[in-house]
């Protein structure tokens, strides 16, 4: 039949598309290594690493709503200290570098958070001046 070439060609194309991750990652030299983060000293006062990895965005959104809608601007951390509910002022005070902390995982998981459209990224120069 004259259609055989067409059908086999279509099947081969389909198989090539379905197995795309296999050869794409071979070509890109990808391994299953996790992205490396620069972590600050000490413990996070707002939750375990496990909780933070999965739900930090939920925490930030909850803070945002509480600050913007209820004017609840402070939070008591697990260590008993009071913190301002602030991404730039609190979170990024310890997690100094956005590029080697936030972005590493966000790029890895192809997440594009809208945080940085408004929030400023504290630069090391500014910090030194303070």
């Amino acid at each position: 039949m004259s259609d055989r070439g067409l059908i086999v060609g279509g099947l081969v194309l389909f198989l090539a598309l379905v197995t795309l991750p296999l050869w794409f990652n071979v070509a890109a030299g990808t391994t299953s290594k996790l992205p490396e983060l620069t972590l600050p000293e000490g413990k996070d006062p707002f939750g375990t690493a496990e909780y933070m990895r999965a739900s930090h965005m939920d925490l930030l959104m909850t803070w945002r709503d509480e600050v913007v809608r209820n004017q609840e601007r402070t939070v008591v951390g697990l260590d008993g200290k009071t913190y301002a509910k602030s991404l730039t002022g609190t979170c990024l005070a310890c997690h100094v570098n956005r590029a080697t902390f936030c972005d590493r995982c966000h790029d890895y998981a192809a997440v594009k958070p809208t945080c940085w459209e408004c929030h400023l990224e504290p630069r090391p120069v500014q910090r030194a001046a303070q």
Binding site: P21, L22, N25, V26, T30, T31, S32, L34, P35, E50, R53, A54, S55, D58, C105, Y108, A109, V111
Partner: peptide
């Protein structure tokens, strides 16, 4: 019930590599 997305990707990449 949020999960660790990075770990999920690590598993997926492990499978395809």
């Amino acid at each position: 019930v949020r999960i660790d997305t990075v770990a999920a990707k690590q598993l997926a990449l492990g499978l395809v590599t």
